[in-house]
Amino acid sequence: MLTILDGVSLAIQQGEAVAVVGASGSGKSTLLGLLAGLDLPSSGQVLLDGTDLATLDEDGRAQLRARLLGFVFQSFQLLPSLTALENVMLPLELSGRAGQAREEAQRLLQRVGLASRCGHLPHQLSGGEQQRVAIARAFATGPRLLLADEPTGNLDAHTGERVVELLFSLNAEHGTTLVLVTHDQTLAAHCHRRLELEAGQLVAG
């Protein structure tokens, strides 16, 4: 058995912005997956909003995600067959708020500066635009915790900067807690706190 994370103990407070940094393979993504309840630790405990994730089954964790979490991924993960608007509407529809989904999604897309690209499919958008749609999608349900996995990893420096600005200003507006995994030291510097992982162990925080 391979030990990926070892002796990682940390607490993140409401409203905090935390950067997780470290070399490739240091266990950053695994930590993020555990925080989101996408996987369970082989030993140890993850508490999300006071709930021990290990006490929930897959669907229970999914419900918790739907209620509390927003995601931004390095590779955007927009559904290729949905337009920008429909991608943002999706989490609202899934959580049973289909009635206000269109209006809310339009508002968010306007907020990220893509009001004119609502009807475009992901492959018709640039990388920066796709990530802005993904950010709009992440905020659609008003999550309390936003998890971002290398949000600028696939973008050039300039576009990355604009996406980061957007991410942080939305974060401030919504009072969301933010955990982001990154290589990017500038991005990490935007955060209140920096956690550094090295070979699965927390070396600074």
């Binding site: 989101a36 996408l38 897959e58 669907d59 999914a62 419900q63 918790l64 995600r65 739907a66 209620r67 979490l69 995601f71 993960q77 559904l79 999706l90 989490p91 899934l94 959580s95």
Partner: peptide
């Protein structure tokens, strides 16, 4: 991928 994203967004397996 769609299935994985849906699950991330909180959709239950059954759904």
């Amino acid at each position: 991928d769609t299935a994985a994203v849906l699950r991330c967004l909180g959709a239950p397996q059954r759904f």
